[in-house]
Design a protein around this nucleic acid. Structure first.
Length: 469
RNA sequence: GGUGGGGUGGCCGAGCGGCUGAAGGCGCCGGUCUUGAAAACCGGUUGACCCGUCAGGGUCACGCGGGUUCGAAUCCCGCCCCCACCGCCA
C-alpha cells in the first residue's frame, strides 16, 4: 500500500512509477475519489460537532423536563411535552442529514480502497527501466575454483553433464510419475538420499542463518487468512497464483489461502502492532512449505523439479527502522548471506539487478540470484543442453509498502514521539527441491554419481557421495 | 461437536446510559531529593483521520458491523476471536 498523502502530494511520481513497472492504474480516479471523500468527511465532522454540542446542551434540559412531566398533569403536562419534543427535534434532523452524507461517503470507499491496493510501489531511481526479465542487468557472477560457467560444464569438468532429471531418476532419488499420479502435473516424490538431501539443504540453511547471522528461527502457519495475503502485498495482484480453501462455503466463517512463501507468515507476526524502536531490527527466518498454482505458466519448465506446485523454502525477513540507508544496507547484507551460503555449497551463481518491469507491485528494488544449472538452456548439435542460469533466490526491498498494509509500526527516540511504519525486506535463503537442480548437476561425476559438498555431509549422516545402489 | 466465561489504552484491570478518551496499578519519560543510584514524592504518557501556512480547531475509535437513544465502552441484534471444561482425534 502506498501512502495516500504522498500520492496526493506527488501524483506524477506514482504515475511514472506504475508506467515503468508496466502496471495500469487510474491515479487520477483515485485523486478524484479521495477529494470527494475528504469533502464529505469535513462536512460530516462539522455536523457531528454541532450534534455533540446540542446533545450536551439540551440533554440535561430534557432530563429536567422529563422529571417535571412526571409530576405535572393536564395542559401543563402537554406544554412540557411539547417543549421536550422541540428540544429533541434539532439533533434528530442533524442525525438524519449525517446519515445521508455518510451513506454517500461510504459508497466511495470500496472503490477507492480497491484502486489504492493496485497502485504499485514506485521503483527506486537507480533501478533500471525495463519491460521484463530480459532487461535485467547482471551485477556480478561467482564461480567455484576450477569452474567457469561462461565456458560451460564440459570445458571445466571434461565430460558431458546429465540433467538433474536423468541423474536423480537413475540414482533413485525422485519419482515423477507416481508424484503426478497422486497430485497431478508439476508434482513429484523425493525418496531415499534425494529426500535426505532436500532435508539436509533446508536444515543447513536454517542453521546457517540462525547460527552464523543471528536470525531468529520461527515456524509460521502456511494456511492463512485473506488479510495476511493482502497485507503482504500478494493480493489482489497474485490472487490467481494461490490455492484457495473455501471454508466459508462449508460453514466456516472465512476462507483460507495457502501461502506461496514463508514471507507471508513472517510478516504477519507483528501485524497491527506498535513495536518499540529498541526491538528493531527484527531478523527472522522460517522453513515453510510453499504452494503455488503456477497459473499462466502452462507449458513452461514442465519437466523436472524447476517449476512445481509444492516445495519447501527457508526464507529470511528483516523488519527495520524507516530509514532508506538502513534498508539498503540490510538488502546488501541479506544478499551477502546467500552468496556465502552458495559459495559454501560450491555452486556458481550470478546476481541480477531486476528492472522495473520485473519488480512486481510491492518492491522498490529487487535483486535475483541465479544458480548455474548445466542441464538447462539451449541444446547443442547433439541435442544436449548447454547450461544456463536459473533463478533460485529473490531479494526484495519494500520500504514501508508491506508494513503500511499490515499496520506494523514502531516508536522510539528517533521518531520524536510519532508512530512510524517499519520497513521490510525479504530474501530466499534456500528453496528446495529447486536448489537440488544445481546441486546434483554441478556435483555430478563422470560415473553418474553425485558428490555431496562438505557443508552438507554432516546433515547426510556423513555421506560423501550418492552412488547407484 | 457440547456447555460455560470473556474481548477496555504498551501491559494488568475498573467502569456497565451523560460528570469516561476512559479510575487504579505496572511500565515508560521528565522533575524534586541524593555524592551517585534506589526508595519516596510531583508531573507527563493511546491511536487514526479531517480543516488550517502557523497557532490551533474538529471528528472517530473500549473485538468487528449494525440498531435503540437528544446522548452508548455501558442497552439490543448479527459476526469474529480468545479462554475453560467435556467429547472426539493425534
Amino acid at each position: 500500500m502506498i501512502d495516500l498523502k504522498q500520492l496526493r502530494d506527488d501524483p506524477d511520481r506514482f504515475k511514472t512509477g506504475a508506467q515503468r513497472k508496466g502496471v495500469a492504474v487510474e491515479i487520477d480516479r483515485i485523486l478524484e475519489l479521495d477529494a470527494k471523500r475528504r469533502a464529505f468527511q469535513t462536512e460530516i465532522d462539522a455536523l457531528r460537532a454541532e450534534q455533540n454540542k446540542l446533545a450536551k446542551e439540551s440533554g440535561p434540559k430534557i432530563g429536567q423536563l422529563m422529571g417535571q412531566i412526571k409530576k405535572a398533569s393536564g395542559t401543563e403536562k402537554d406544554a412540557l411535552e411539547k417543549q421536550a419534543a422541540e428540544l429533541r427535534a434539532a439533533p434528530a434532523r442533524l442525525k438524519e442529514k449525517i446519515q445521508q452524507l455518510e451513506q454517500q461517503s461510504q459508497g466511495i470507499e470500496p472503490d477507492l480502497n480497491a484502486l489504492l491496493l493496485q497502485v504499485p510501489h514506485p521503483a527506486d531511481p537507480d533501478v533500471p527501466v525495463g519491460k521484463d526479465a530480459s532487461d535485467n542487468v547482471q551485477i556480478r557472477a561467482w564461480n567455484p575454483t576450477g569452474f567457469d560457467a561462461a565456458k560451460g560444464f564440459q570445458a571445466s569438468k571434461g565430460f558431458a553433464p546429465k540433467t538433474h532429471i536423468e541423474l536423480m531418476e537413475s540414482l533413485g532419488l525422485v519419482d515423477f510419475e507416481r508424484g503426478v499420479k497422486i497430485a497431478g502435473s508439476r508434482s513429484y516424490i523425493l525418496k531415499g538420499a534425494g529426500m535426505r538431501l532436500h532435508q539436509a539443504v533446508l536444515r543447513y540453511a536454517i542453521d546457517f542463518i540462525a547460527d552464523k547471522h543471528g536470525f531468529t528461527p520461527v515456524s509460521v502457519p502456511v494456511v492463512v487468512r485473506e488479510e495476511c495475503m493482502v497485507g503482504t502485498g500478494f493480493f489482489p495482484a497474485g490472487r490467481e497464483q494461490t490455492y484457495h480453501i473455501e471454508e466459508s462455503t462449508r460453514g466456516g466463517g472465512y476462507d483460507m489461502f495457502l501461502t506461496g512463501t514463508g514471507e507471508v507468515g513472517l510478516m504477519g507476526i507483528h501485524a497491527d502492532e506498535i513495536l518499540d524502536e529498541s526491538q528493531l531490527p527484527l531478523k527472522m527466518a522460517t522453513v515453510s512449505t510453499c504452494f503455488r498454482r503456477e497459473a499462466g505458466a502452462a507449458g513452461r519448465d514442465t519437466a523436472g523439479l524447476y517449476r512445481i506446485h509444492q516445495f519447501d523454502k527457508v526464507e529470511q525477513v528483516v523488519i527495520c527502522k524507516a530509514d532508506e540507508a538502513e534498508s539498503r544496507a540490510w538488502h546488501k547484507k541479506m544478499i551477502a548471506i546467500v552468496e556465502e551460503l552458495l559459495q559454501s555449497l560450491e555452486l556458481p551463481y550470478r546476481l541480477l539487478q531486476c528492472c522495473t518491469g520485473d519488480l512486481g507491485v510491492k518492491n522498490a528494488d529487487m535483486v535475483d540470484i541465479e544458480c548455474w544449472m548445466p542441464g538447462r538452456g539451449d541444446l547443442d548439435k547433439s541435442g544436449r543442453p548447454t547450461g544456463a542460469y536459473g533463478e533460485t533466490h529473490s531479494a526484495s526491498r519494500l520500504y514501508d509498502f508491506q508494513c503500511r498494509r499490515l499496520n506494523m509500526r514502531y516508536k522510539g527516540d528517533s521518531t520524536e514521539g510519532k508512530t512510524v511504519f517499519c520497513h521490510s525486506l525479504n530474501n530466499t535463503v534456500a528453496a528446495s527441491p529447486r536448489i537440488l537442480i544445481p546441486l546434483v548437476e554441478m556435483h555430478q561425476q563422470a560415473d553418474g554419481s553425485v558428490r555431496i559438498p562438505a557443508a552438507l555431509q554432516p546433515y547426510m549422516g556423513g555421506m560423501e557421495v550418492i552412488c547407484h545402489a
